[in-house]
Amino acid sequence: MLYSRDRLLELESRSLAPYAMRAAETRGREFPEPESAYRTPFQKDRDRVLHTTAFRRLEYKTQVFVNYEGDYYRTRLTHTLEVVQVARSLARALGLNEDLAEVISMAHDLGHPPFGHAGEQVLAGLMKDHGGFDHNRQSLRIVTWLERRYPGFRGLNLTWEVREGIVKHETVYDVPSAGEYEPELRPTLEAQIVNLADEIAYNAHDLDDGLRSGLLKPEQLEGVELLSDLARELRLELGRLDEFGRRVLVRELLGWMITDATVSTDAAIQAAGVNSLADVRQYPRPLAHYSEEAAARIAGLRDFLYNNLYRHYHIVRQVAKARHVLERLFAAYTEMPQMLPPGVQRAAEEEGLFRAVCDYMAGMTDRYALDEYARLFDPYQRGRI
């Protein structure tokens, strides 16, 4: 039996919660085009994001550790895949649209520049007087303008709900600027759980990478209430935590956060009397959240990671190096645009030099940025100029 698009849409209509976003009810695409015979609109969007250049580049973009630090640390790509897993788990448990949650997760970091949040801070500062920069808006710009794969339009022509989910992505470190995507209303619950999934994923895997790298010492975890209590339940001695114990601790931490987010979000939906997507959009606060107790404990973990990992001298040195590389590249390109590749020079004529340079640099991987720095400033650099 073939499952046509109509059959898939019918199954969605019958199986999803009343407040979920159904693909059949999408506001559609900016440019009309035929839908797939055997995929829903959100499944089609997912596949389009997967095949972009921007998605592949995430493999060589920093999460916490710069790419050359080692093969086992998370990158933007592996982080994205972990967010997808968490978001799909939350969506399935809550009766939401897994395909919509998946595609928003896959696209949420497409606009991140090289060198993680350090790179974003540098570009935001450099572009302050030239239209600004933030990675949510850049992710939207990639899928609506910069990716060129279809003859009739620029961008990927994604559905409205996916684009809204991208631009309204919000975490402790990401503040959305929704622009024309109804900023006065909440996004779909699928977009809201991606916000949670992002936080859940990076809290767990940054802890894991920090311990694996040796920048975090197991005995330091005793001061984090959430981790010390969890270790006690698992009968782990944090002062003698080995590799297997680390994996158990991180795995159970991840499961604990997912479970709390699922149960607490369901309780919030029931308490608010939400029965439709319109109710979700008009509710004054996000419905997807942790319990109060869990939120306080997770905040303690986040503070610990900030003070002991993200502000570790080794990471601070990486950040300083990244800042130096990006500032030098930006100055070189804007002072002498003739050094830019022909395609970027053409973009500068259409959209202005600073925006074209910003797009070019935001698209760089860590490795490409470092190689480009060497090509421009190392007098002994050999090979292709």
Rank of each mutant, 00 (worst) to 15 (best):
H117N: 12
G214L: 01
V344A: 00
A231G: 15
P218V: 00
L227E: 06
V172Y: 15
H117F: 15
E30L: 04
S13V: 02
T62P: 09
Y60K: 14
L221P: 03
P284H: 01
L2D: 13
V250T: 05
M336I: 12
A271M: 06
E292N: 12
G131K: 04
M361Y: 01
H108R: 04
E98G: 02
R149Y: 10
Y173S: 14
L156E: 08
M1V: 12
M336F: 09
A320S: 14
H205F: 15
T26K: 10
V175T: 14
I166L: 07
A178L: 07
Y181A: 04
S4R: 14
M257F: 09
D371N: 11
E12R: 04
C358H: 02
V357H: 00
T262H: 09
G239Y: 11
E243V: 05
Y181P: 04
L50A: 13
H130I: 01
H312V: 12
L94P: 07
M1N: 13
Y333S: 03
V263C: 06
Q192E: 07
R88G: 01
F153I: 07
R149K: 15
L241Q: 03
R137Y: 09
S177A: 14
A20C: 07
E237G: 12
A268T: 06
D109E: 11
N157G: 11
D366H: 03
E182W: 14
A20R: 03
A278E: 15
E237V: 13
R46L: 14
L236E: 04
R235Q: 15
I104N: 07
Y283D: 08
A87M: 02
Y72V: 13
P218L: 01
D99C: 10
V143E: 09
P114M: 04
P18F: 03
G245E: 06
H312Y: 09
E147S: 12
L123V: 11
